[in-house]
């Protein structure tokens, strides 16, 4: 889903760059409220974690493997603004050092995977989570995380297809169903992984899950558990 250079036309590149730059600016401003600015080492190591986690391919069915995007997971664990910024850093590094996603398409890639697949999906997640609160916070969080990590993959791939179609690189009627079809299957894997990871982290270190408010404050030093 990382769009390379040359696949987008000028207007799409510029428009998504402006949207992404604006969102990054706003998130930088808001992240200062979300966490102590000095905690940058923790965010850096979490970015390294997302990198490593994307290397652990998960099985889809009979040999093909999908790999893991993690925007919803990052936002649930770190809070939306820090999660978005960590994802943006990962996309920047993938672009500059792994040639995964183009330089002129970086705005579009942050837009698809950080804003549409990230912020928008996370906002919908919080909307759905609230009325489910009577089933207990753990269940409502896990259910809405499952739903919207699946949704985030699909909506991000749809955004990617729409941008490619607007740029006239591919025709809309073909690429949209193809992208959405494939990613609605990949999204199932993403949802399963997200739920399992959240279940374990809530079990072991609930204080590390930013979206899990009813976490008991653990004394530091649960290190023996993992």
């Amino acid at each position: 889903m990382h769009i390379p250079d040359g696949f987008l036309d000028a207007k799409t590149s510029v428009a998504t760059y402006i949207a992404s730059a604006g969102t990054v600016g706003y998130a930088l401003y808001k992240a200062k409220e979300e966490l102590d600015e000095k905690k940058i080492p923790v965010l850096g190591i979490t970015a390294a974690f997302i990198f490593a986690a994307q290397m652990l391919n998960f099985p889809v069915a009979g040999g093909t493997s999908g790999h893991f995007l993690g925007a919803i997971l990052a936002m649930t664990l770190l809070g939306p603004y820090s999660g978005f910024l960590v994802m943006s850093v990962v996309l920047l590094v993938q672009c500059l050092f792994f040639a995964d996603g183009g330089l002129t398409a970086l705005g579009a890639n942050i837009f698809n995977m950080g804003i549409i697949g990230g912020f928008l999906s996370f906002y919908l997640l919080t909307l759905v989570k609230k009325p489910l609160g009577r089933f207990g916070e753990r269940k409502s969080l896990l259910f809405s995380a499952a739903l919207f990590s699946w949704f985030s993959i699909i909506i991000a791939s749809a955004a990617c297809a729409i941008e490619l179609a607007i740029s006239k690189t591919v025709s809309f009627g073909i690429v949209l169903p193809a992208m959405v079809g494939v990613h609605s299957i990949i999204g199932i894997g993403e949802a399963i992984i997200t739920v399992i990871v959240l279940t374990v982290v809530i079990e072991v270190r609930p204080d590390l899950v930013a979206s899990f408010k009813s976490a008991p404050s653990l004394p530091y030093g649960g290190e023996g558990v993992v």
Binding site: V42, I45, V197, T199, R205, L208
Partner: peptide, 22 residues
């Protein structure tokens, strides 16, 4: 690593990787 129900193993790995990294 062949079938989707084995995703549980990968999920646990990612979870402990996250906790250790954090």
């Amino acid at each position: 690593g062949r079938w989707i129900w084995q995703a549980k193993t990968v999920g646990h790995m990612i979870a402990s990787l996250f906790i250790r990294s954090h």
